[in-house]
Every structure is written in C-alpha cells, then in structure tokens.
Simulated scan of single mutants.
Amino acid sequence: MNARVRRIITTRRGGASSGKYDSFNLGEHVGDEPAAVRANRRRLAEKLGLDEGDFVWMDQVHGTRVVRVKSAPGGAIPGTDAVVTDQPNLALSVLTADCVPVLAADETAGVIGAAHAGRKGSSDGIVPALIAAMESLGAQPERITVLLGPAASGDFYELPEQMVADTESVLPGSRSTTTGGTPSVDLRKGLTRQLASLGVTDVDTDPRCTIADPELYSYRREGTTGRLASVIVRQG
C-alpha cells in the first residue's frame, strides 16, 4: 500500500475570530466565541475538501497517552496527546501555540500519527509512545517520515537554567541559548535526536518560531490567544 498523505499547518489569518483570537483560531478551550471556532473549523474542512466529521481532535493535557482511532469520535478525545490510525480520510489534528506538533506517516503501511509535544510531554516520552503505537499498526521506523511544525525556538524559548538542565537530561540535544544569551530549550532539536535514536531519520522541521512570527499564535508572546492546527490525513 502506498498512500497519499497530506500535512497541513494553519496560520492565524483568514478566519472568523476577533480580538485576541484574530482570526483563524481553531481551539475551543481558549475563551473564544464558540460560534467563531465552529465557523473556523468548518472553513478548514472546506479548504481541505473534507467533512467536519472527518476531523479527530484531542483534549490535550501535556501527557503521554496515545489513542488508536478507527473513526472520528464526534468530539475531542479526553486526556490525550497523540492519535494514530490505519484508516483513510481521518484528519488527525493537533492544536498548538508554542508546543511542537508532530505529524508522522508510514505511507507504505498506510499508518499515520499526530502528537502534541510540549516540554512536559516531550520530556515524559510522548514521541516514543507515538512511534511505538504506529509500529503496533505495522509501521516501520525506517519508513516513517515526520514533520515537526512551527513551535517555540531555542532563540526565544527562555527558561530557568535548572529547567533547561532537567529537560536536557531526558531529551538530549534540546539545550539552547536565546538571542539574548540566556538559557533556553529547543524541543524540535531534541525531538529530532530522539527520533533518530528510534530509527526515524526522515524528519523535516518547519523553521518558523511561534514566539517570533506574528502570523502564528503564541501563548508565550500573547498569553490569551488562539491555537493553530496541524493536520495529517491519509487519503483513500
């Protein structure tokens, strides 16, 4: 089986939200008007040529729970930070505003996965859990391709030195330094190294930094703000 896989990442432009959520906020949990979020999700589905019911959303909690989905559940999956499937036409979706969206696929096996990898989830092992769940469906690490989407970069993701050291100890390669010379973390660099240790070497990184790029939502920069969506779908 060689499947066509699409990976899509939204920006904050082109939607119905206003104020601090201007304008293409896709998160239901951030205080935006529910009608605006519904309109934005409907617009996203239309742009991708999908039905709203094809999307799989998660109630993300910075944990390591991975759920296999065989059909869209009709609501956010509770307490989950990664989903995998071997079914076509399911749009696995990750919401972020600084954390790393991880979109993975083994096109030969027809298996895709998506994970929300913040500092805590990355440190606790959400990405190895994602890869293991994909392998349980027949994926092979050497065939898996991964896109790490826009996220807080080491140039701007400043943290206390002890927190940086703690993260580096469990996610080697993540230690960084901001443009101002202070300790920071670059999760995408750490995750790329971790994926390589798992046998996944075909990894692309979207270079955009959510903190630095005004076209993207950033909790660090703005506090109250919307959420981007990173979506992966295998078309049958």
Rank of each mutant, 00 (worst) to 15 (best):
S93Q: 06
V185Q: 00
H62E: 14
A117K: 09
L195D: 03
V94F: 00
T177Q: 15
D54N: 13
A104Y: 08
G121T: 05
L44M: 03
S197F: 01
A132D: 09
A129K: 12
D155G: 14
L44D: 00
G27T: 03
T224K: 12
D32W: 01
I8G: 03
P88M: 08
R227W: 08
Q87Y: 05
D204C: 04
I144W: 01
G173Q: 12
A115I: 06
E158G: 08
R41T: 04
L130C: 12
N2M: 12
D186K: 05
D98W: 01
M163A: 15
D54S: 15
N2S: 09
P160N: 07
R38I: 03
I8H: 11
S174L: 07
D98K: 07
R65V: 15
T96D: 06
A97R: 11
V69S: 14
E135D: 10
E46T: 13
G74Q: 01
V170G: 02
L159P: 13
T64C: 04
V102G: 02
Q140E: 11
S230D: 09
Y217E: 11
I77P: 08
A109V: 08
P214S: 14
T145R: 15
A129R: 12
V100K: 10
D166V: 15
R4Q: 07
G49K: 05
R143P: 14
Q162K: 15
R7F: 05
I131T: 09
D59M: 04
Y157D: 10
L148N: 11
G125V: 01
V231E: 08
T108R: 15
V94H: 03
G149T: 06
A115D: 00
Y157E: 13
A115P: 11
H116K: 01
D86C: 04
L50Q: 07
A91C: 03
A76T: 02
L187M: 14
G75P: 00
R221M: 13
T96L: 05
D155V: 12
R42G: 14
D59C: 13
A36D: 13
V233K: 01
S93F: 02
